[in-house]
Each structure stands twice: as structure tokens, then as C-alpha cells.
Design a protein around this nucleic acid. Structure first.
Lengths: 197, 197
DNA sequence: CTAAGAACCGACCGGTCGGTCGGGCCGTAC
DNA sequence: GTACGGCCCGACCGACCGGTCGGTTCTTAG
């Protein structure tokens, strides 16, 4: 039978590594740090992973899985384009802020040179997300009869939205005054109507 | 008499280091790399800087100087709040995209642990920028009589705008189809009226 | 019980890193 | 001339890194 996810050693290692990479950065975290955090020796750690890069890749790939499951999947089930976009914003912010899903911020920040093959796989998944968002924005634009033709291309709008949200990890502190729910509403308002509506 | 800026060895070193840090990252760039890029030995390099951290700090401090000179300074001279904000967006984007000012992206991306004292100085300058932007947005909100009270706080709007712009370095390629002028107009439009105006 | 394989340990390796140091070169002052 | 300081070289150091390896312990199937 398959492994219980809670005690699968690879999953545990990935969780610990994600925490350390997020706190100290990938380069500043040694394999010894990861092993020690798990009450393991470095040799023991290498029994489960072949290399440090493999850990990073698995982490990033897992981060894309999370995005797929928590954002893209649920969102695709929504019929109305505008509601679909609003939900995407809400869920994307939720994933970035999630304490449990530290892989996401690691993936957003680290751009350590993986082997070209692995790098391509991650980039392909990122691009898939961008294109989905781009198409979704284009769809919403079509349902909203603007006065003239819209000034903003779906592509630029997609990058702007991703920037707004993906930058949050740089300044957000859970103990701060700006809470998740308020953030979702305000960012949604800015993207749909601007900061001065 | 004071040094000519073009031949000041410290400035030359900072330029070279900025280029390498941007291309390969701070950790992945050795002092030997920096020295070699300048046809210098590592020992010679250490004649001008005491440590690698000192280079990084000077780089970041210089990046804040550039922001001061190229963005904050010129913008403060503009009387009309809305024009002031529009110019800030334009100039902030210009600085992030500037090929000559690589210090900026290094500062945006690297968060290597500097000594607490140095770190505080950089953070203080960043906060000063944020507060200026926050106040400017509040001022524009006052000049624009919104229907009800504005839904968006100046603080959230400031972070959203900074995220949009500071994230650009993650995806922008000068040879791409989206050019600086178009980017400025579209980002400005999104921030003022949303993506669907 | 035994045997086998997974899990793990800890010593170790080659290499690289940031940083040091003693000394050499060279323009300038006297 | 010579003494001196700025500038620079290149050999070197200790620490640490990612990764390896031979061997030990634990688990489990038969």
C-alpha cells in the first residue's frame, strides 16, 4: 500500500527544507541544516534525495501542484468569467499567504540555476498559469463593454496582477494590521476599478 | 581634489559587482569573479573594500541614492498631486528597467543578511519611500471626489503599486514585445482606472 | 529464528569560499 | 639618490560546502 502522506519521509524533508529555504534562502541553507532540523545525519538525508537541487526542484514542482489544486482547479469550475477572475485573485492571495505552503514563496524568490531540463519543466508550468490568466482577463474584457477599445492589453494586465500578488510575500507580516480578507478586497478593487474608484 | 567618478576604483568595482550579482546572484558570485572581471587580483580588490558585505551594502545604498535622484527628487518638484503620482510611476518603471542601474534589481531581489545596523539603514530608506508614496496616494484620493468613501486604503494601494512595478524585473526582457513606454501607460491606466476601463 | 533490504550514521573527500598577508612595483616628495 | 605611501599581486589559511562510502541498526517477511 502507498505511504501515509504525513509520515512519508520525502514529504517531511520537503516541508523542513521549505521552511529553512524560506527563512534563510537556498544558498545559505546547507544540507547539514536540513538534516539536523529532522534529527538526521547528512548521510541519512542523502538516502532520500540524490542532491540539493533535487530537493529544490521537488519543492518548486510541488508548489505548482498546490497552485493547480488550490487555484486553477477550483477556478476552472466557475462559469462566469468575472467571478472566475475574482476567485482566482482570492485564491492566489490565499496561497501566497498560507503558512503551510511555504514552497510557494521559495519558488517565487529563488532562481537558482537548476539543470536546463528541470528548469524548463517549472517554467512551462508557470507559463501555463500566465496564459490562463491572460485568456481569462481577455474574456472579462469582452463581457465588459468598455467605452472605447480597452487601453490595457490582457498580457500587461496579467503581469501587473501577478506582480501585485506575488510581491506580497516581500512585505506581509501576519501580525500586521493588514489582514488577508481586507487585502483580497482591496487588491480586487484596484485591479477592477483602480485605486481611486 | 575629488576623484573623477568615471575612474574612481570603488565606483568601477561597484558597477562590475552589480552586473555580476544581477546575472548570477550574490551568493553565486565569488570575490574572485568580481576581481577577475576588473583585471584585478582578489588581494587587490580587498584593498578597496573590506568585505563582500560592504560591496553589497554600498550597492544597495547607491540604489537608494539613484531612487532619490531619479524618482523622489524630480517628483517632489511637481505641484499637482495626480501629475506627481503619474510621474512617479513613469520614473520608477524607468529606473527598474534601466540597463545602467543594475543596482536596483540587485536590491530588489537579494535579501542577504547584512549586519543589523546596515540592514536598518537600507530598510529605513525603503520605508521612507513607501511613506512618501502612501501620502501621495492619500493626497490624490482627496482631490478625486469618489462616490462614497474610497474602498482602498493608501497603504494597500501603495503596496499594490510597488508590487506591480518591482515585479517587472522578474519577467521583462528588453527584446520582448512589451516596451517601456507602453508598459508605463498600461500600468498607469490599471492603477488609476483598473484593467477594464 | 534468520536473512535481506531499507534506513541511517559519521568519518571523510575534493573543492571553493571569504578573507589575510608579506612583499613588490611605482609615482612623488625631499 | 632614497624614503614613503598607494596600489596591487599571488600564495596561502581555516572553514565549510555538497556529496560519498563502508559499515551499523532497524524492520519485516518467511
Amino acid at each position: 500500500m502507498s505511504r501515509d502522506a504525513a509520515t512519508d519521509p520525502r514529504q517531511e524533508i520537503l516541508r523542513a527544507a521549505a521552511r529553512l529555504f524560506q527563512e534563510q534562502g537556498y544558498d545559505a541553507t546547507s544540507m547539514n541544516d536540513v538534516a539536523t532540523a529532522l534529527n538526521l545525519s547528512k548521510g541519512g538525508l542523502y538516502h532520500h534525495f540524490q542532491s540539493k537541487d533535487e530537493i529544490l526542484f521537488d519543492l518548486m514542482d510541488h508548489a505548482m501542484d498546490i497552485t493547480q489544486d488550490q487555484v486553477l482547479g477550483p477556478v476552472k469550475a466557475i462559469a462566469d468569467p468575472e467571478q472566475r477572475l475574482r476567485t482566482l485573485i482570492r485564491r492566489h492571495i490565499a496561497v501566497v499567504l498560507s503558512e503551510r505552503e511555504r514552497e510557494i514563496t521559495v519558488m517565487l524568490h529563488e532562481n537558482h540555476p537548476l539543470s536546463p531540463g528541470l528548469r524548463k519543466r517549472i517554467n512551462a508550468r508557470k507559463k501555463e498559469y500566465i496564459h490562463f490568466l491572460e485568456n481569462l482577463i481577455a474574456e472579462v474584457q469582452r463581457t465588459r463593454p468598455a467605452a472605447g477599445k480597452p487601453k490595457v492589453t490582457p498580457r500587461a494586465a496579467a503581469f501587473a496582477l501577478l506582480g501585485m500578488i506575488n510581491w506580497i510575500y516581500q512585505w506581509y507580516r501576519p501580525e500586521g494590521s493588514l489582514q488577508e480578507e481586507s487585502l483580497v478586497e482591496q487588491y480586487t478593487a484596484i485591479f477592477f476599478q483602480g485605486a481611486f474608484a
